[in-house]
Design a protein around this nucleic acid. Structure first.
Lengths: 344, 344
DNA sequence: CTGAAAGCGCTTACAG
DNA sequence: CTGAAAGCGCTTACAG
């Protein structure tokens, strides 16, 4: 068992309150006394008991706000599970998590939610995804003017005062996909790229990573596209059919967006499933099924759960224990799965 | 803020002690009263505050023993990091972790360590690896006679009363390797298997998983071996050279043991690195380096850290919170990595 | 500037 | 079988 504040108080011949003031720099204490107490504490190897502190501080009812956009997508549903888990833990520890789900993507919705949370007295906010100039400046305002720390997750926003970002390193993810595809097609032949939206920075980063690494490491691979399917199965199917018809010698498809069902349907209908090597993204929807069937060769995923869980806990640890996050970027692991490493 | 034991006591018209007895099944309470209190607690959505509990229970100074064999290997070093982290957390929460490292593998060492831990009054033991009849019967004796729950990790022991096992599903790992290798060699050609010891059950399970899945899913692949290198680089190099000389058309090597350095050296010397597809195991030693160089195509790994961390925490959660483990097997994730998904 | 006391939510002897 | 009280280690009004 560790040294307690009481033992230090006895050793220093003062009260526990005084030790607290000294050790936590609360002021209202004679500087020499504070110094002496700190010296004694250090000498005795004092380490504050987090349970005592947490229990005592649970009176403060610290509030953390979470703003989530596009909660209707399967991916965000998993993120949501992570948030709910963090919320349960924070509740349990005497805090509160205020969650606002905004349907689809709406900068105005985010701004309003931020406003409202400030009125409700939150001490910190986790926010995703972010892609708007007004939101950016509001983030800086909150951090600087109101000292409300903000963590972004899933999609980051550069050049703001946000504390840190939790999510995928999209460029590196694209490179990992290239490394896999290069091997799957034995380093040569045609590979088509299908992405979602050209306007989405994460998707674009993945495409850039894929292209640059393929060029560098597998120069004999000829890349086609990217074409954009807007995460739509019908369009994805049409694009798949088109590229296959125009390129009967196609070796692989890098599916960088949702629309997998549409693509796999066409591959199966044409008897090409398994023959055309497919690297796809995210452990969502029917992707595991396609992996088992062989229509998808390898799947790359980000830990959606962690993307919901970590931001809340990072803020909690900051506010409750004064523990700063490890670094500005908390990248979730880039996970590779085949048919045999599907969980459960 | 959550519901507290005090609120339940008021709602039920009893004292807090009575609520505690009801909710934690401590006996000495009229069954009907207990039922009623549980009902109310559930209705109010009561979730115990872990800080309060931990603080209050920190008087008990609960001890958990950990016995680790072969700590000198790099793999066990990482396991050790997980144990140290768990130890730090448990210390901080008012408990104690007693760690005994036994050099190499020694059943007698394990038996003595168990004996000593019981004398020191541990409430539970985590133990690895296990491969001995005497140890088996001592496990059962501890569990049944002394009510000391035991968790095995890294390597399991069947047919005992151990609470659960934390480690890899070796057979499934072999299957995963087959799935990768099958794709890497485009489903045909010769693939050599090099393993460590024929007597090691985990290694054998991986080989069996590899063989059975290859046979089933890639029948055109011709498997050679397994040959055994006894985790020795020199022997691994010799085996590699031999199989390459005898089979100039070799397409891949499944390296199921340590000795990667010896193998990669030969591949590089013969100018075959990258050409021969290699699937190897464990994120240890120079394996990441070989992955970057391309001498190893894909790496499969188990989470060594989790294998150290989880057993201690499972026991802590059991003793401290009365939380039973999820199931008898806590399989660590089978992770696949290529040159782009190396951590950091 | 400092101390004494109350309280956070829980568990645990101790009385009855 | 049940209750009242003390205590875990910390923080925080409140007095002085």
């Amino acid at each position: 068992m560790g040294v307690t504040i009481r033992q230090i108080a006895e050793a220093a011949g003062v009260s526990r309150g005084t030790v607290d003031r000294a050790l936590n720099n609360r002021g209202r204490i004679k500087p020499e006394v504070a110094e002496e107490i700190k010296r004694i504490a250090k000498e005795m190897g004092y380490r504050p008991n987090q349970f005592g502190r947490a229990l005592s501080m649970s009176k403060q009812n610290l509030k953390i706000g979470v703003i989530l956009q596009g909660a209707e997508t399967p991916f965000m549903q998993t993120v949501l599970q992570g948030i709910e888990q963090a919320k349960a833990e924070v509740d349990n520890l005497g805090g509160t998590v205020l969650l606002t789900k905004i349907p689809h993507i709406s900068a105005r919705g985010v701004l309003e939610a931020m406003e409202q949370m400030r009125e409700e007295g939150v001490s910190a906010i986790a926010l995703a995804p972010v892609e708007d100039a007004d939101v950016k400046s509001k983030i800086d305002e909150y951090v600087e003017e109101y000292q409300i720390p903000i963590v972004t997750f899933n999609s980051d926003v550069k050049d703001t005062k946000r504390l840190c970002f939790v999510g995928q390193n999209a460029f590196q993810c694209g490179r990992a996909a290239a490394g896999l595809m290069g091997e799957l097609v034995s380093g040569e032949g045609k590979v088509a790229m299908i992405s979602g939206y050209s306007s989405n920075p994460s998707l674009s980063d993945r495409v850039r990573g894929f292209q640059s690494e393929m060029e560098k490491k597998y120069p004999k691979v000829e890349l086609l596209g990217p074409e954009y399917c807007f995460e739509d199965n019908t369009i994805a199917g049409q694009l798949t059919e088109k590229v296959l018809t125009e390129n009967p010698d196609l070796k692989g498809i890098f599916m960088n967006s949702h629309g997998e069902e549409g693509m796999c349907k066409v591959l199966e209908d044409l008897g090409k499933a398994g023959e055309i090597k497919v690297v796809a993204n995210d452990f969502m929807g029917r992707n595991y099924e396609f992996l088992r069937d062989g229509a998808i060769s390898l799947l790359i995923g980000q830990d959606a759960y962690v993307q919901g869980y970590e931001p809340v806990m990072i803020l909690f640890r900051l506010l409750f224990h004064g523990e700063e996050p490890q670094g500005e970027f908390k990248y979730t692991e880039i996970m590779i799965r085949n048919a045999y490493t599907i969980p459960q």
